[in-house]
């Protein structure tokens, strides 16, 4: 529904727009978020395509992944996976809390999700510093930094959205009926989480 559709025809010189018909049960903002995520998934798709070209299609692709003498810190990234998956649960907890009207739960859930997200980024930063190669060390490194970096950027976007939700939560917004501002960043956060699992499996494990 549009902003105009929501003006309630209050008194004043503004003659407001008619209320738009709702031709679908799905809520407009949720649909917008889902489409945006679809587009984001395709952006990941292009990075996976680049990875696929470098690792599989290329006739001179390295026999080992990553090529000797390098290796990926599978364990550290595994810990990071656990951190991120946990944060999906805390996010879910935040949303369920506000649905029950439990504001304290909402705040705690959001804050712990943000903390876990920050922990993830920090770990990734440390991993980058100690991984033993840098983006200039060959196409495998390009694919590695490309995919993990793209994902890191998305964690950052997700964290920004969550921070906004948290600011608003602490300033008294959101009710059991109105909590899109929590739900939508939540959907995005789960997407970021799922994407990480895909990245982890393809880049580190396979």
């Amino acid at each position: 529904m549009s902003a105009h559709a929501e003006a309630h025809g209050h008194a004043g010189e503004h003659h407001g727009p008619p209320t738009a018909n709702r031709s679908s049960r799905i809520d407009a903002t949720t649909l917008g978020m889902l489409l945006f995520i679809g587009s984001e998934a395709m952006l990941f798709g292009s990075f996976f395509a680049a990875y696929f070209f470098v690792r599989v299609v290329n006739p001179i692709a390295p026999a080992h992944w990553p090529p000797a003498p390098f290796h990926f810190p599978i364990f550290v990234a595994g810990v990071n996976t656990v951190i991120l998956v946990t944060s999906s649960f805390t996010m879910h907890w935040a949303l369920q809390s506000i649905k029950r009207g439990d504001r304290a739960g909402l705040k705690a859930g959001l804050v712990s999700t943000i903390a876990l997200g920050l922990a993830f980024l920090l770990t990734q930063g440390i991993e980058y510093a100690h991984v033993g190669f840098n983006p200039g060390d060959g196409a495998f490194a390009s694919a590695f930094f490309g995919l993990t970096g793209l994902h890191g950027a998305h964690v950052l976007i997700g964290l920004t959205l969550l921070t906004i939700a948290a600011v608003r939560a602490f300033r008294g917004h959101y009710t059991p009926e109105h909590h899109h501002g929590v739900e939508l960043p939540g959907i995005y956060w789960h997407f970021v989480d799922v994407m990480w699992i895909v990245v982890y499996v393809t880049v580190y494990l396979l």
Binding site: S2, T29, H178, H180, G181, L184, Y188
Partner: peptide, 12 residues
């Protein structure tokens, strides 16, 4: 995404 949340009236 800010777009998604623009028309919200959490506390109308």
């Amino acid at each position: 995404m800010t777009t998604a949340a623009q028309h919200e009236h959490d506390t109308p």
